[in-house]
Design a protein around this nucleic acid. Structure first.
Lengths: 215, 215
DNA sequence: CCTTAACTTGAACATTTGTTCAAGTTAAGC
DNA sequence: GCTTAACTTGAACAAATGTTCAAGTTAAGG
């Protein structure tokens, strides 16, 4: 059950290009299948088929189903965190830290990445699964909470009158709304509103959240 | 795969009290286990153990895992829908339909039910699983969309300038925030804010959403 | 109080699942 | 160009899972 990365010490040889390509294929396939079916609904064999690799390879590169899930979530988390922190840094150096701009620094990168590479859309659905299942709270804590903490701090400075509790609540609402916009195209379609992810939608989301924070 | 209720015609005998009690136990157990583990993570045997019944009984009353899941989600949906519509009716008859009051009519009943009966907390986690997995969009459409439609209509009347798209987006954000407050105690705790579900929290959520709608 | 539909019970079954493993292949490090 | 760590492959395995079923029990309808 303990899912920390193995120490990775004792490696005597660099992985070959072929091996790296295989590992990439495995992670991409895992991301797709986990996003489609969740952890329990996904099977190693389906991931293997998606990757075009034999089952043994999935275990070799993934280290078991649990570890593979963890790796899949963690892989893109760093990119996302960096983009968010860079965006925040940009806001800071511009000197006009409005609530809208700070929230946009947190929210926009996910959409920007999604529009450039559809695999980020799969990743968003995967994150939605993580966020709803308390089994993965350690993964959330590891992959997302540190950056969340930075933004909560920043928002606190902008809203000195609000209690920490209010800020955290608003932040959690904002994150869940963001995931809803990233993943709920179907649902909105069913409610009679065809929503595509253009910049207008994201602006609307940011303003929605900012207005909420200011109660 | 087709999951409509069987016509239920041809029933020649009313179920006994014992049978009704068993069915209740089965549904309660299913609700708990599905809420803890999701559809794929749950097993018939674990539900059976939770209910204190043999496996065969779960199938007899549930009609298979898929049908049992459907029944479990649908069971409380009607109560919830009624409470919401009643609350809306109350707002209407009071004659002061503010956005806050209409949103509260949608949001509060879930919390009121949860505070009276902890099984509604399990149900909230179950609904969160449903909302995140596109496999269950038909269940959502059947159990929740009709009432959602009524509230969207009502909100549209209060915000005549907003487009349908904006209303639906705001509504989806509000629902996801509501589910977050119902289910994310852990997550907020991890972010350093111990949140309990008193009336203040719910007021805050309602004001958050209302402010967002008004952009 | 009968009749019998409805319910209860748990063993049995066919699949599917995650994982292991041993034999073969590739290419990194020297 | 050797050596051998690292990778690849797919067969095999034990455990778990959803479902079926046949025999026994309960109680509704008359």
């Amino acid at each position: 059950m303990s899912e920390m990365q193995p120490p990775e010490t004792e490696r005597k040889r660099a992985p070959s290009k072929r091996a790296l390509a295989t590992k990439l294929r495995v992670l991409d396939a895992a991301e797709k299948v986990f996003a489609d079916r969740g952890f329990d609904g996904a099977t190693i064999r389906e991931i293997a088929a998606e990757a075009g690799e034999p089952v043994g390879t999935i275990h070799h590169h993934g280290g078991g189903k649990n570890a593979l899930f963890h790796k899949t979530v963690a892989r893109r988390a760093e990119t996302l965190s960096c983009d968010r922190l860079n965006a925040l840094q940009q806001v800071r150096s511009d000197g006009d830290q409005t609530l809208e701009r700070v929230l946009a620094a947190f929210i926009r990168p996910f959409f920007d990445l999604s529009s450039k590479d559809p695999r980020w859309r799969d990743y968003a659905r995967l994150v939605a699964f993580v966020s709803v299942d308390s089994r993965w709270k350690n993964i959330s804590a590891e992959c997302f909470d540190p950056v969340a903490e930075v933004f909560i701090e920043e928002i606190s400075n902008l809203l000195p009158k609000a209690s920490r509790k209010q800020i955290v609540e608003g932040f959690v609402y904002s994150v869940s709304a963001m995931l809803a916009l990233l993943t709920s195209q179907n649902r909105m379609g069913a409610l009679g509103a065809q929503v595509d992810l253009d910049s207008t939608r994201i602006d609307h989301l940011v303003r929605f959240c900012a207005a909420g924070f200011r109660v």
